[in-house]
Design a protein around this nucleic acid. Structure first.
Lengths: 210, 210
DNA sequence: TACGACCAGATTGCATGCAATACTGCCCGC
DNA sequence: GCGGGCAGTATTGCATGCAATCTGGTCGTA
């Protein structure tokens, strides 16, 4: 028996496939084909699909299996503010003492983002690391779980997010301002910039929809 | 084939068993026994368990199956403010126009609560209805999903909540004040009372823990 | 041509089978 | 008396089997 349940790996793999479009929005998931492709049986695959359906990354139609939810501009408009508020809440619930230790590390990651932007690489992964670090000291595991569950939904829409290099640079600047605000102990300012960071991302999203 | 997947019914049934303690906190879930008891095979049962684990109502230990998480005072202290903030957020995102139509209906349910209290009945179900009605106009389905997922976690701790009749009466009063604030269009006041309602519940919870 | 019944293949949902791991109780050495 | 190891059982995790439903395509009829 593998040390980790097979379904965990499958959830990860399927998530990336939904995010990069290999499992296209609106398409139905064929359990037999996907299981064969992934080299597992249908049972752990179905378990993974059910887990993903619980997080909203898939939807289930009784008798018809699983479906990648179609894109919906309305949904994006609701997801970005939601993640924004949840992250802001996590920030509010992190002790100032813990927050004080973060800005330097955050800026290091922000530097990586700038470097990646320079090289024309994908910023999404580094951006994720930055946000994960920002929230890493929040003592409320349930809130963190909700955030982790919600972000993938949003990432489906994010493909075009960092498309505009202008927005990317702007976003990095916002990240630095958040770190600066934390350094001064100005939590409300940090929180405000954080929320705006997400909301602006949404604004850019609207420009070139799939 | 049943019109609804078997796992949906199982999720419901198992949830109630966790909440009423028939599946005790800290106890492991035996799939064979539970499947036999519920009259289903292990497959849909496992699917239900996985769904519940995704919501945090169960936890999975690789190689050892599922476990009802033990009670943890810290967890309760974090869940109540979380639900409070989430509900307040849902309220903030509901259009004032929609909110204006709610207070009368809310007070009707509050009357039912008072009546139930009079008769010494369990208020939990009516309380749930009141909150569900309050949030029913929120246009963000994902936020509502997060709330629905989180509340059962909290309810495990709630068993002693309405134990004190004094607190119950107080809570009903708070509900009426929220409706009144909505009637006057004073959303901040409604939100504040709502949060305090949850936080006070937590305070009472601490008094007589299991 | 439009429309609906019907039939064959595909697909899901659930049941069962099986091997690897985890647990239990016992024995043995210390 | 106590802790470590061992055998047998219990239990999980995954694979496979099977029947009901869904799909979509064809044919017949108006």
């Amino acid at each position: 028996m593998g040390r980790t349940p097979l379904r965990s790996d499958l959830i990860e793999e399927i998530t990336t496939r939904v995010l990069d479009g290999r499992l296209a929005a609106g398409a139905r998931v064929n359990e037999v084909h996907l299981a064969r492709e992934l080299g597992v049986s249908r049972t752990p695959l179905r378990e993974a699909l059910i887990g993903l359906a619980g997080r909203g990354l898939l939807v289930t139609e009784p008798g018809r299996g699983f479906l990648v939810p179609p894109f919906d501009p309305d949904e994006a408009r609701r997801l970005y503010p939601l993640v924004a508020e949840l992250e802001a809440l996590a920030l509010r619930w992190t002790s100032p003492l813990e927050l004080a230790g973060l800005p330097d590390a955050l800026d290091v990651v922000a530097d990586e983002m700038a470097a990646a932007l320079e090289r024309g690489e994908d910023l999404s992964e580094v951006d994720d690391r930055w946000h994960a670090l920002l929230l890493s000291r929040c003592p409320n595991p349930h809130l963190l779980r909700l955030i982790e569950q919600t972000k993938p939904l949003l990432k489906r829409y994010e493909s075009c997010y960092f498309g505009g290099a202008g927005r990317a640079g702007e976003s990095i600047g916002e990240h630095r301002r958040i770190a600066a605000a934390l350094r001064e102990g100005d939590l409300p300012a940090a929180s405000a910039v954080l929320v705006r960071n997400w909301v602006k991302a949404l604004a850019y999203l609207g420009k070139d929809e799939r």
